[in-house]
Design a protein around this nucleic acid. Structure first.
Length: 277
DNA sequence: AAGCACACCTGCTAGC
DNA sequence: TGCTAGCAGGTGTGCT
């Protein structure tokens, strides 16, 4: 589900509705959701602390605590963060509930149980948990310099889409936005990164920003299963602007020929063979 | 050592 | 209508 635009939308929701309040209680019902530390340690790290600021790095949510530790949340495929009234119906697959001092609850809902929460206290100079140190540059938080990216692309021998999905190179792009960025840049997702010209890398960088900014403006993409929601249950609308993703056989918005579907590094990949080279 | 397949889960859908 | 195989926004591990 959630890639950079969806996680950024959740982050903004936490800034509006979640931070500035103290954690007064922690309820954990899903064992798999807390797996980097014991549930007792997780509760001990949170109870009594105040949520200060919600940040994001790639697809990770980082909530600064007043204890100098950071609550880390990753939604993986099916996770949702919701802010609810304490009496609100507890939907199935609700694994963690944080009671907050403003009479709301922060809930983590995750049918596939791939998502996780943990509290990290070992941080680097940017306040990023040391365990996330392998993450590459974030397109919104960091500047993506054409020169540096050109250099990285040259020394990798991989399909462009594989590079965009590699979180140690650039973090936050997933299967949907990799396809949309490739289309916007007019580049084939199968294109070998070491064959890209400088002008094409320039197009790649500007397309990356254009697509991600537009998707954030639309509050992300909610696909057919309607699983992605923001913290108040709102839906994204960027799926209405998808040029290629999940549009097999439908006309390319640029040339009108049917969008094709294939597999790149094992992931469904949608592209226009005419407009993308 | 980079690059790939697979495992981790549940739920939905397409096809028989 | 009802079953089942296949597939899904991600990433960590382990193989080649």
């Amino acid at each position: 589900m959630p890639e950079l635009p969806e996680v950024e939308t959740v982050r903004r929701g936490l800034e509006t509705f979640g931070v500035g309040h103290q954690v007064t209680g922690v309820d954990v019902t899903g064992k798999r959701t807390i797996r980097r530390q014991s549930i007792e340690e997780f509760k001990g790290d949170l109870i009594g602390s105040t949520l200060l600021v919600a940040r994001r790095r790639g697809k990770y949510l980082l909530v600064d605590l007043d204890t100098d530790a950071v609550l880390v949340i990753h939604l993986r495929m099916s996770g949702q963060v919701r802010i609810e009234a304490p009496g609100a119906e507890v939907v199935p697959h609700t694994h963690v509930r944080l009671s907050l001092s403003n009479e709301t609850e922060l809930r983590f809902v995750d049918p596939r149980t791939f998502g996780e929460l943990f509290v990290a206290s070992e941080l680097d100079e940017r306040g990023v948990p040391a365990v996330l140190g392998a993450l590459g540059r974030d397109p919104l938080v960091d500047e993506i310099a054409v020169n540096a990216l050109f250099g990285r692309l040259r020394i990798r021998h991989v399909a462009l889409k594989g590079f965009l999905l590699d979180q140690t190179e650039i973090c936050g792009i997933g299967n949907i936005y990799a396809d949309e960025i490739c289309f916007a840049a007019g580049l084939s997702p199968l294109r070998r990164t070491d064959t890209l010209k400088r002008s094409e890398v320039e197009r790649l960088v500007s397309s990356m920003h254009a697509v991600l900014d537009a998707a954030i403006l639309a509050k992300g993409s909610t696909l057919k299963d309607a699983r992605y929601r923001d913290v108040t249950g709102g839906l994204g609308s960027y799926q209405e602007h998808h040029a290629t993703y999940d549009r097999e056989g439908l006309p390319c918005p640029s040339c009108g020929r049917p969008i094709r579907r294939g597999k790149v590094i094992g992931r469904s990949t949608y592209f226009c063979p005419k407009c993308q080279r």
